[in-house]
């Protein structure tokens, strides 16, 4: 070994731990991965005016806006606004055998109870556990007191249609309702994923809570690989079934619904959460003004270049919803990083 090569190897040993974060940083930058700071500063702070936040933070408001704009949403059965109404809960939900109770200002799917049927005075939850009417009332009281709302503000409870989810995802879901998250920037759907509940997420379709995120080709609605707890996965963690190669039906309609949510709220950078109903097709569930970044791992693609492209396009022209969707389907051809 020559002196030079020894020197180089020694240098490499010393420099490697120092360099590796820098190299990682540069590699991520090159791949166009959007970081938290950049998302907050350049997209959320710039395109999401605070005054529009209540429109998405309050799901009741979002739902009413969507209905007005004739965007398909799960039907609203009842709203409980004050503690006094809780007594009448049973009467209000009497006509429905299955329904969902959720806080209007909840976050991350917290406080949602899905009832699939009745056993006398008891209600059967989607996970099979029976809930007594009193327990249900207590839960509604908790919602009203603000237990699940951001900042603990007093809240409203919504009772709505329980989505009969499309059998497409049955094999790769553990209880709960899988939903589809679409990032919409200035009315252009830029990236999407399917979120599959797992045992760890206790049936919730939230990546933070342990759901699996599956990247979806935005041009045609075909699923590929997934992300679970920031790790790349090919199979559902509970059922073991492969998650790639599924075709989501009604994809173009789903994109159109997502794209039209921009006009609904005026927020430039949002995450649109949709579900696939067996009979009613895609329904818009809620909007998120601070959508997460794990979608990039699920798609193995960075958001930044797509956002930059849209930014440029918006500066040049204003487009209709249809042509926006068409542009996206034509442009964002799926090219995963590996």
């Amino acid at each position: 070994m020559t002196f030079k090569s020894t020197l180089l190897s020694v240098l490499e040993r010393i420099l490697a731990p120092l360099l590796s974060p820098i190299l990682t940083y540069l590699a991520l930058k090159k791949m166009g991965i959007l970081g938290m700071n950049q998302r907050n500063a350049e997209f959320i702070a710039q395109y999401n005016p605070r005054k529009f936040y209540p429109l998405v933070d309050d799901k009741l408001l979002t739902k009413n806006l969507a209905i007005k704009a004739s965007i398909a949403v799960p039907e609203l059965y009842a709203v409980i606004e004050i503690e006094h109404q809780v007594v009448h809960l049973e009467k209000m939900i009497a006509p429905y055998s299955s329904f969902v109770i959720k806080p209007a200002q909840g976050s991350g799917g917290d406080g949602i109870v899905v009832i699939v049927g009745r056993r006398g005075p008891n209600y059967k939850r989607s996970d099979g556990i029976l809930m007594h009417a009193d327990e249900l009332k207590h839960h509604v009281s908790n919602i009203l007191s603000g237990m699940y709302s951001l900042g603990g503000h007093p809240d409203k409870a919504m009772v709505e249609y329980r989505v009969e989810f499309d059998p497409l995802f049955r094999e790769i879901s553990y209880q709960g309702v899988p939903d589809i998250r679409v990032i919409v920037f200035k009315g252009y759907p830029v990236m999407s994923m399917v979120r599959l509940p797992t045992r760890l997420s206790s049936g919730k379709a939230n990546l933070h809570q342990g759901a699996v995120g599956v990247g979806v080709n935005i041009t045609n609605g075909e699923t590929h690989f997934g992300v679970w707890q920031n790790h790349v996965v090919e199979h559902h963690t509970d059922t073991g079934n492969p998650i790639s190669g599924l075709q989501i039906p009604d994809w173009e309609r789903l994109l159109t619904i997502s794209a039209s949510c921009y006009e609904l709220t005026g927020l430039g950078y949002i995450g649109v959460d949709l579900v696939l109903d067996r009979d009613k097709g895609p329904l818009m569930l809620e909007l998120n003004a601070r959508p997460g970044l794990a979608i990039q791992i699920a798609n193995r693609t960075g958001l930044a270049p797509r956002l930059a492209l849209i930014k440029k396009r918006c500066a040049q022209q204003k487009e209709s919803i249809q042509s926006r969707v068409a542009f996206v389907q034509k442009t964002f051809v799926h090219q995963p990083l590996w």
């Binding site: 940083y25 590699a27 930058k29 991965i33 700071n37 350049e42 920031n230």
Partner: peptide, 24 residues
């Protein structure tokens, strides 16, 4: 510091998987 829009140290770890696979 408010002008810093780059990655956080924790994000380098979070998105590490993307690079590992990418390099191989």
């Amino acid at each position: 510091l408010g002008c810093y829009h780059g990655y956080r140290l924790s994000e380098l770890i979070r998105f590490r998987e993307l690079i590992k696979k990418h390099d191989i």
